[in-house]
Design a protein around this nucleic acid. Structure first.
Lengths: 342, 342
DNA sequence: TTGTAGGCGTTATCAG
DNA sequence: CTGATAACGCCTACAA
């Protein structure tokens, strides 16, 4: 009563295993008539190939590398954990993973790392890094050598990367904008925006989406120019306090990038930090806690587990030259408030 | 340069394959000293077992069944599709699936179906059905026969089911409540609640959560008693229109269960349907379209793909007597608005 | 154009 | 207590 195997199929079609295999893998050297006979038998007995057994026999091994910033932020840490966890799961059987971390904002080091990985002939690389000319060149070089390349979290649109695994950051910014506008409601005023230099492209896109929505749908709310925190706790603290101290009309805070730990602490201490609508990105220990205690009203998140698994699937498909199911590889924008935090 | 295998391990430890296997699977009949030697070798050469090869050799086959209502709603259709799709994926290798549909509200038929599946000695069953005494008995019976049972979407808490795969519906209702309250803002008034008899338990829980939040956090908003649509288009149309016609103060609509297609159509036609805050559950073709055209403000969703895959993983773990990683099996409550619809 | 035999990494049976 | 040896379902030389 178990699933039919190639043996059953061979018997049913009256041919040998080798011929079955040739037909199954559409290899040359089989008469048209024989092919039809085998296909008929496949229908007949309802054969479906055991992919894992095939992979085992084929001895196919995938060697992938993930390159990620050695960043202070919790998000990167979470992503890294998700990658190693995904790699351990049986979904990604027969693949070896290298996770390389590079200092942020050091294009030279990044390129050197990519080159090194390319030399170790990996089959594919997932890169979480900003786009620079050097990186572009190195990616082109990798692709010439047949290495699959996917961009992670922040896109590298002008590099010829095979795929981007991450959310549409403009849409993420729009989502933040709608929530900000609707949560503020009649409570008009200004919105303070805290920027961050990390992953410049992603953050710029979010800001763009946020501004689109605010000016289109909530024109009476004034969105202030970004405060640049430069991911430095002291700077963030200083610039944000200054605005809160001096402007009575601040009603909301939008944190585009990293640095939410400091921001949350500051808001909790500051006399004006209580009634504000505060929205940030990425669910981490800090933002989670802030949602729980009400400092944060919403978090726009991208699921690191999904990102890791999707990257692995896409890399595999690309190195096999197979099409990806783009529906499955779409990374959704999660909205998290206290009630659906878990 | 490839991964070490049991053969390498046998060589390294100076024992045979069989002994390696015994140690690996902690089978009896190996001297303590030999075990230590093998374990040392494992560390030494960094052996890690190839799970797929193991499954292949083990010839383990899982026979699972999903029992779902033959419901008109799109949600069930989506869930069914997700199940068959998940079954096709290599994640669930070596498992055969039966999907049985039963007419809703026919406990007798349901029990008969469960009994039939039990007789076909399936290893596990995922059940999406309301809890009745007969079902309780039959589940107890199944479990006595060693069949793993998980409840799907709507819990069966008093049946001794092994696990529940679905969202915390009280929290889902709370999520809907918070969004309703915050989206309404200063715009006070009453909220119309449309109930549905399908999956009574899940809907009651949602309603409970919704009411909790509304009375705690938004006490000035009046939540009306549920309108019973009985999942009948004409009834829904009639009862909802009646309220909209007669009450000027309706500011929001909360649809707890199914029947969103009709509701949306009605709201689009009705003169008072425009300015309302409308929140519903489950992302389907209907609700998706309604989000796009602005009829619906938010949808609280549970990802059918996650539910299907989680059910399969849990069934497998339970039949193997393995612990599940509960973190991974938690089904999140998704908030969907137009901006993060994709 | 087709078939035979051996192997992929693991488990299971049966001797020793 | 330990070891050969034959599976599992599929792929791949090499022969015919």
């Amino acid at each position: 009563m178990s699933r039919p195997t190639v043996n059953d199929l061979a018997k049913a079609a009256g041919v040998s295993l080798a011929t079955i295999d040739r037909v199954l893998n559409s290899r040359p050297g089989v008469r048209e008539q024989t092919i039809r006979r085998v296909n008929a038998a496949i229908e007949q007995i309802g054969y479906v190939r055991d992919v894992t057994a095939a992979n085992l026999a084929r001895q196919r091994r995938y060697r992938f590398a993930f390159v990620m910033p050695e960043a202070p932020g919790e998000f990167v840490t979470l992503l890294k954990a998700a990658v190693t966890e995904a790699a351990a799961s049986p979904i990604v059987d027969r693949t070896e993973l290298t996770v390389a971390t590079v200092p942020p904002n050091d294009p030279h080091f990044l390129v050197k790392t990519l080159r090194r990985l390319g030399a170790q002939d990996v089959d594919g690389i997932a890169i979480f890094a900003p786009e620079t000319p050097h990186v572009r060149d190195e990616i082109a070089h990798l692709k010439e050598n047949g290495v699959a390349v996917v961009a992670l979290v922040s896109d590298l649109p002008n590099t010829g990367r095979d795929h981007f695994v991450g959310v549409d950051n403009v849409a993420a910014g729009r989502t933040a904008g709608v929530l900000m506008g609707r949560f503020l409601g009649e409570n008009q005023g200004s919105v303070l925006v805290l920027a961050s230099s990390m992953q410049a492209r992603a953050n710029a896109e979010r800001r763009l989406g946020f501004d689109q929505v605010m000016s289109d749908q909530f024109p009476t709310i004034q969105v202030l120019p970004s405060l640049e925190g430069h991911d430095d706790p002291d700077t963030i603290r200083r610039v944000v306090s200054a605005v809160l101290d001096n402007r009575e009309d601040i009603a909301g805070v939008y944190s585009v990038g990293t640095g939410n730990g400091v921001l949350v602490d500051l808001l909790k201490e500051h006399s004006r930090g209580q009634g504000l609508v505060v929205i940030a990105h990425e669910l981490t220990r800090n933002t989670r806690r802030a949602l729980e205690d009400g400092t944060l009203d919403a978090v726009i998140n991208q699921n690191v587990g999904h990102i890791a698994r999707s990257a692995l699937r896409v890399l595999r498909a690309k190195t096999d030259g197979i099409d990806i199911l783009s529906a499955q590889e779409h990374i959704r924008i999660d909205i998290v408030i206290r009630e659906n935090l878990y």
